[in-house]
């Protein structure tokens, strides 16, 4: 199997979206991060086979692409749950009982940082300051920011989040 044979691992839609990015820039490999994010949007994470296919499509080595993929914290090289919870562990949230809220959340979900719930619903990951420090403590569930977590009922928040999909 040649390198190019792995490209069809990607869907025609993914390839079209990646080629759209490539068309805007002077070098194919400059689309590396966008391409990884596109595939992740479709599949939730970037598997080894996806990585090899993207590398072939962008005419770069899988090793170089993996060096890029593993540099960025919002690119997931392991399977994640349906929703990723990005919990702010930075200073302003720390001052507003972020650690206490994180403990409650971990207890509620039965997982610690880097883990996924048994039902595959949530993965919990710490994230640097989310830029909402006036509403600390905060976290993101999927694309949605949740604020003032110290005063909120986490269980019902997650239930709402589940319903709102």
């Amino acid at each position: 199997m040649t390198d190019l044979d792995v490209i069809p691992t990607l869907s025609p839609e993914e390839i079209a979206e990646i080629e759209h990015e490539v068309a805007l820039i002077p070098r194919r490999d400059s689309a590396a991060i966008d391409a990884l994010m596109i595939v992740q949007r479709h599949r939730g994470w970037v598997s080894d086979s996806s990585l090899k296919a993207i590398a072939a499509l962008l005419e770069m080595s899988p090793e170089e692409l993996d060096g890029i993929a593993t540099f960025y914290n919002l690119i997931y090289r392991q399977p994640v749950g349906e929703q990723v919870i990005l919990f702010c562990d930075s200073v302003s949230c720390w001052l507003r009982n972020g650690d206490g809220v994180k403990e409650k959340l971990s207890e509620l979900l039965g997982i610690d940082y880097g883990q996924t719930t048994a039902d595959g619903r949530y993965t919990l990951i710490p994230v640097p300051c989310l830029g909402a420090c006036d509403r600390a403590p905060v976290m993101m569930v999927g694309d949605d920011l949740h604020t003032h977590l110290d005063d909120c009922d986490l269980a019902s928040l997650l239930t709402c989040e589940a319903n709102h999909d």
Partner: peptide, 19 residues
């Protein structure tokens, strides 16, 4: 962006934009 604080440094940001 796909994350990392260092991207705020302008030459790091340029590298990130270059993929």
């Amino acid at each position: 962006s796909a994350g990392r604080y260092i991207c705020g440094e302008e030459t790091a940001l340029i590298n990130a934009l270059e993929g």
